[in-house]
């Protein structure tokens, strides 16, 4: 594992340095603007700096991650004295864990210096935000692991993100019902459940990454036995969403609700299985 971390940081040294420099610039700009512009409320900047840093670093991480595949660095790393699993874990640590941790350290550090009285509240807020970001990252990582072409990775991520946004209120009400609205649940239990869910997704990703061969890089679904489950998932997820809309009790409404799931399923099926149709008038 040490070799994997050492090799990956050597390869991506410039990008890590760039991320550090960008982070430093953002911190200096934020702190500088508070000092130089007295009318500006420091509290607002402190609240958003950690999240902004996290987002910027994670966007850079996504670019680096996708770039590894397009530069065929992945292909070469598979031949190195690190396993596929170690490579997967290295990326999780350096491209997901590190940005989240670093952003939190900056956020808490600045808060401790400037507003020590709200340190605990900031800490609680950071835990919730970090848990959610970790969960979203785990979804992206597993999608990017399973799906081959870049644009399909992005399409898959947008689809899943859309589902998460749509399912968000439902999940929130479920959490509320379980917790009975206690703040203890929201501050401690909810982030723990979110982190555990993210770790479970990462564990599945780790297992899959060990069995992915480089020859599947252009395939929509790189894991053979997940092809049908993904097509079915697209249908079921879209169907649940469309059927939950009002006016689906009538036959017309029901049929109307079937249109989008069927279209999306057919499109997914075509990308996943690449069926060839032969149009001919010959007997």
């Amino acid at each position: 594992m040490r070799q994997a971390l050492k090799l990956y940081t050597t390869i991506r040294k410039n990008q890590f340095m760039m991320a550090t420099v960008i982070g430093m610039i953002l911190i200096i700009l934020s702190v500088g603007s508070i000092i130089l512009i007295p009318s500006m409320t420091g509290q607002d900047i402190d609240d958003t700096l950690g999240t902004a840093l996290m987002c910027i670093w994670l966007i850079m991480a996504i670019i680096v991650f996708l770039n590894d595949q397009s530069r065929r660095l992945d292909t070469w790393l598979y031949t190195q004295n690190i396993s596929r699993g170690q490579l997967f874990l290295t990326r999780i640590i350096l491209l997901v864990g590190l940005p989240i941790m670093a952003a939190n350290v900056v956020d808490l550090g600045l808060t401790a210096v400037r507003h020590p009285h709200i340190l605990m509240a900031t800490f609680n807020n950071d835990i919730t935000v970090s848990a959610n970001v970790l969960f979203m990252s785990s979804l992206f990582v597993i999608i990017a692991t399973i799906i081959g072409p870049h644009w399909l990775k992005l399409a898959g991520s947008i689809f899943t993100l859309g589902l998460m946004v749509l399912a968000g209120p439902m999940i929130a009400s479920l959490f509320k019902r379980i917790s009975g609205g206690t703040s203890h649940f929201e501050v401690i239990i909810q982030p723990i459940i979110t982190v555990l869910a993210a770790l479970l997704i990462f564990a599945i990703g780790y297992y899959l990454a060990q069995n992915i061969s480089d020859d599947t890089v252009d395939e929509a679904v790189r894991v053979h036995y997940l092809k049908w489950p993904i097509v079915i998932f697209v249908f079921v997820a879209t169907l649940i969403k469309t059927m939950s809309n009002p006016g689906r009790n009538s036959v017309d409404g029901f049929l109307l609700g079937l249109i989008l799931p069927i279209i999306l399923t057919v499109v997914t099926f075509i990308f996943v299985f690449k069926p060839t149709f032969k149009v001919t008038w010959d007997k």
Partner: peptide, 17 residues
């Protein structure tokens, strides 16, 4: 046995990192 992997060198041509 990944520790053996520095015993073999291969880069695919012409497209490689």
């Amino acid at each position: 046995t990944t520790r053996l992997h520095d015993q073999l060198f291969y880069v695919d041509m012409p497209e490689n990192w």
